[in-house]
Design a protein around this nucleic acid. Structure first.
Length: 197
DNA sequence: CTGCCGATTTAC
DNA sequence: TAAATCGGCAGA
């Protein structure tokens, strides 16, 4: 498995979004390493997207990471209690990112279970297993990602994404739909920028 | 400084 | 179906 390089992220956000499906997120935490497969993403493109935090070149303390180099983590707090992980895309000064909406645990699920629920994986209910990391806030919990991971370089060692051996057929395997919970975004609510396996 | 609201999740 | 919960943002 090979760590994705800067050039992978330095492309059109829709291309990066689709290409992220099936890739592995690697997270180093508490001297352990956990691994997840990306199964669901959404694209956010500031220049044309009213759903994006950086729409209209809105440069604030929160959004500034999206204006920077591609391949960095944009983590924000939502609803006062959950974190969401994004991957910054496109060139400097072009605010855009891919929201990671869902992953499947691959290895060291025991560590993730402790982070997510505070108990061992074999103690989990069927309901808890089903909802383990199928949402942006849930997967951040399972990966131990908080605001202190905001601005992390994904070419570093603490949090990165790497190739898997799995071959994803962009026509057959990737489903497309409207993004979730962006009712306020006017015409952008209809953009088909959600991709999932 | 004030007030509103959210790229969600969970419990009832 | 609705509450939880608080930082970010805009406007005064």
């Amino acid at each position: 498995m090979k760590k994705l390089e800067r050039d992978f992220y330095n492309r059109h956000t829709l291309e990066v979004s689709k290409d992220l499906l099936g890739k592995y997120i690697v997270r180093r935490i508490d001297d352990e390493e956990v691994l997840c497969k990306i199964t669901e993403v959404e694209a956010y493109i500031g220049r044309i997207d009213k759903a994006c935090h950086a729409y209209g070149n809105r440069l604030t303390e929160r959004t500034k990471v999206m204006f920077g180099l591609p391949g960095y983590a944009y983590v924000y707090l939502i609803y006062g209690m959950y974190y969401c992980l994004n991957v910054v895309t496109e060139g400097e000064g072009e605010p855009s990112a891919v929201l990671i909406r869902g992953v499947e645990p691959v290895s060291n699920i025991g560590k993730m279970s402790l982070l997510r629920y505070g108990k061992a994986y074999d103690e989990l209910s069927k309901y808890q297993i089903k909802n383990f990391s199928n949402g942006p806030g849930k997967l951040c919990k399972a990966l131990g990602i908080t605001k202190s991971e905001n601005g992390l370089d994904l070419l570093g060692d603490d949090l990165y994404i790497c190739d898997s051996r799995e071959i994803i057929d962009l026509e057959l395997d990737v489903k497309v739909g409207k993004r979730i919970n962006i009712d306020y975004a006017e015409e952008a609510v209809d953009f088909l920028w959600r991709f999932y396996l």
